[in-house]
Computed example of a mutant assay.
Amino acid sequence: MELPPCVEEFTRYYQVPQVLVESIYEVEAGWPGAKVGPNKHGDFTLGVMQVNSLWFDEKIGSDLKRYGITPEQVQHDPCTNFAMSIWLLREQYRRTGDWSRAVAQLHAGPRRWKEAIQHAHDVFRRLEQRQ
């Protein structure tokens, strides 16, 4: 899937390197409508960027419902999926100051990022190949 024009707009707005988003997209290999899982924690990953369903859990402080964002939108609408992924990356980077940890948290959720650090390394290997 070629990246939709909204990706450039979102990466510019949230100040996230577009090449990082492209690398995550290539490693995740998701597609519109994808719902993969459940994993060992009972979570699913959704859509083109394989957003972890944990991000919708109010127990972790998620306020996505307040913004009207639903798991179904993230699963089926590529621009909503990219917008949420890019926003989450920015927020996690803002909190940690570390793009690798931000990528891991995007993949596994904010409390299980250590489990996903290898996944983040896969993304950064892809990023190196792109440059």
Results as ranks from 00 to 15, higher is better:
Y67N: 06
G68M: 06
E9I: 03
I60Q: 06
E115M: 13
A29S: 14
R12Q: 14
W87Q: 04
F44Y: 15
L64Q: 00
C79Y: 02
W55C: 00
R94T: 09
H41G: 03
E9C: 09
P17E: 03
S62D: 02
L54V: 15
Y14F: 12
V16E: 03
I117P: 05
G109K: 00
N39A: 12
K59L: 07
W31F: 11
K59M: 11
R94D: 15
K65H: 09
V51F: 15
H76A: 01
E22N: 05
Q75A: 10
Q18F: 01
G97I: 10
E128I: 04
L3G: 04
L88I: 14
N81I: 08
G33H: 10
Q131E: 10
E2D: 10
Q131M: 11
G61N: 11
E2V: 07
S62A: 09
K114Q: 15
Y14P: 00
E22L: 09
P5Y: 10
R66N: 10
G30V: 04
G47V: 05
V51C: 13
D43E: 15
L106D: 01
V103S: 00
Q131S: 11
M84A: 03
P4H: 07
Y14K: 06
I60G: 08
Q129L: 11
I24M: 15
P38L: 13
R101Y: 07
Q75N: 12
S85L: 02
